[in-house]
Computed example of a mutant assay.
Amino acid sequence: MNTIVYMLRHGDSPIDGNERTRVLSEKGIDDSKKVTSILKNEDIDVVISSPYTRAILTVQPLAKVIGQEVKIYEGLKERIFSNGETRLADEELIPLLEKSFSDPKFALKSAESNYDCQERAIRVLKEVLKTYHGKKVAVGTHGTVMTLIMGYFNEKYDLAFLYNTTKPDIYRMQFRGVGLIGVDRVWN
């Protein structure tokens, strides 16, 4: 029996504010309703999320419609790019992303590398695959984390892939055990 994981990148959010508590923009709120509309008839069994507010708010309407609570997994949080709590400006973030994808162990002092982020996120995914074997699971997370999880299974999910994702975005990943057997983009 296969397990289906719907990997959801959170909706649009303001770039100012605390990384952990930033909310969705008006567009992000509207898009969370579209996420719900797309996934409400997929027979999703469980909804899990990063602890970051914008990820929770993206999947919360879906959880409500299917009568579930959002289960929070700390390991799905965004990659820690710096020791600050505010989002880095794109001028700072883009060079860090580029260096991180060319050198997965690169990290600023008091920050996290792609390698470290991928390792923690894959631990969560393997736990989810074991706990919810044969189920359909919606996972609210972040662009970099989603890319690193998917890249663990196939190197085509790289920085170029990340740059081509949208906020929000949805990918259906089909697993047999812990082996990935297929990926389809669901968001349109």
Rank of each mutant, 00 (worst) to 15 (best):
T3G: 03
Y6E: 00
R9S: 10
R9T: 03
S13V: 06
S13I: 01
S13P: 12
N18G: 15
R20A: 15
T21Q: 02
R22N: 08
E26G: 14
I29R: 15
D31T: 08
K33F: 08
S49E: 07
S50H: 09
P51E: 11
P51H: 09
Y52A: 11
T53H: 10
L57K: 12
L57S: 04
P61E: 11
P61I: 06
V65L: 08
V65S: 09
G67W: 04
G67H: 02
Q68W: 05
E69Q: 09
G75F: 05
E78R: 05
L88C: 10
L88Q: 14
L88E: 13
E91L: 02
E92M: 13
E92L: 14
L93D: 03
I94A: 14
I94P: 13
L96V: 13
L96K: 15
K99E: 05
F101H: 02
S102P: 04
P104E: 14
F106L: 12
K109V: 07
S110F: 03
N114T: 02
N114C: 01
D116R: 09
C117R: 00
E119T: 01
A121N: 02
L125R: 05
K126A: 01
E127P: 05
E127G: 01
V128G: 07
G134T: 12
V137E: 03
H142K: 02
T144G: 04
T144P: 03
F153N: 04
F153W: 08
F153Q: 01
F153A: 11
E155K: 12
E155Y: 05
Y157H: 02
D158L: 00
D158Y: 03
A160C: 11
A160H: 07
Y163F: 15
Y163H: 15
N164T: 04
P168T: 11
P168Y: 07
D169I: 02
I170Q: 05
R172L: 00
M173F: 10
G177H: 01
V178C: 08
L180Q: 00
I181C: 03
R185E: 04
W187I: 13
W187H: 08
